[in-house]
């Protein structure tokens, strides 16, 4: 039961007008996501070659209600931007024995433009695929000599939101070949494994059933180009591994830990399914 309704950006910006039917039905709305009238976000793109069962990739933004969509179109309304501002202050805060800061090496957050789009990525020195969180913690511990930040803690998630925000509009483009390939394959296997007492794989919900309602939830493709997401449901920025954890837990399975090799691999794989969508974080979801 897949229906697509074409609506222009104007319809979305009108917010509530004429949206009663839209809010309840399972309708993917095609609209243009432009943030602050400036940053153009690609929310629909041809699927990358490595995807076998999907021809078009779609941002989770398209499956949210017009009201939720509108919040992300304006940085003053997007509560996730408060976290970005906090991280901006933190960027130049001294840490470690020598009072190092992110700014000591990176000048300003804008200098990290482009980073979000290519992570997770292979790190030659460490000989492993690193997520952006792992990279930040490498800087915090090895370069600044400070204590590692909690992988999904507020400080980390806000910093990731800041680093994402300066890449908004750039196409996600993670590498899946070369030394990263075995990790990518591992992630793919996890994506298609039916975990838990409910025997559900990510693919069951986000590949086979996107655009369908599952009880009150309108299933998206489970893309991660919008992370961290500010969720109206819990009123905070949510880290991608916490979302993975929630989805696995909901299958009545034993989850993997945030930052675990399994979730790092899964993140690389899921990110690659979004190659071609724009970086959107911090996005707004329900």
């Amino acid at each position: 039961m897949r229906q697509t309704l074409r609506t222009g950006a104007a319809r979305v910006m009108l917010g509530l007008a004429g949206s009663a039917a839209l809010a309840t039905g399972a309708i993917a709305q095609e609209a243009n996501l432009v943030i602050d009238g400036e940053i153009e976000i690609v929310t629909r793109a041809p699927a990358p070659d490595h995807m076998e069962n999907v021809s078009e990739i779609v941002s989770g933004w398209e499956y949210r209600s017009p009201e939720t969509q509108a919040v992300q179109m304006d940085d003053f309304e997007n509560p996730g931007m408060i976290g970005v501002d906090n991280a901006r202050a933190d960027f130049s805060a001294a840490m470690g024995p020598d009072g190092q800061s992110c700014a000591a090496c990176h000048d300003n957050p804008e200098s990290l433009e482009g980073a979000r789009a290519v992570y997770p990525k292979w790190d030659e020195t460490k000989g492993e695929v690193q997520t952006l969180e792992m990279q930040v913690n490498e800087c915090v511990t090895e370069r600044a000599g400070a204590e590692a930040w909690n992988y999904t803690g507020t400080r980390m998630t806000e910093m990731i939101a800041l680093i994402s925000s300066v890449s908004r509009g750039l196409p996600v483009n993670v590498a899946i070949d070369g030394p990263a390939q075995p990790t990518w394959e591992q992630g793919k296997e996890i994506y298609y494994t039916r975990y838990g007492q409910l025997e559900l794989a990510c693919a069951n919900c986000h590949e086979d059933n996107y655009d369908n309602m599952i009880r009150a939830d309108h299933l998206s493709q489970g893309q991660i180009n919008g992370f961290p997401t500010y969720r109206l449901k819990n009123g905070k920025l949510n880290a991608v591994h916490n979302r993975f954890k929630g989805c696995v837990r909901d299958t009545r399975a034993q989850t993997f830990a945030p930052g675990s090799p399994e979730f790092v691999a899964l993140e690389l794989y899921v990110a690659s399914r979004g190659n071609g969508l724009s970086v959107e974080g911090p996005s707004v979801r329900n």
Partner: peptide, 14 residues
Amino acid sequence: GFIRPGDGFSGKAG
């Protein structure tokens, strides 16, 4: 016969 069976919705092993 489950893969990583959980203890209900706790996220812990069952």
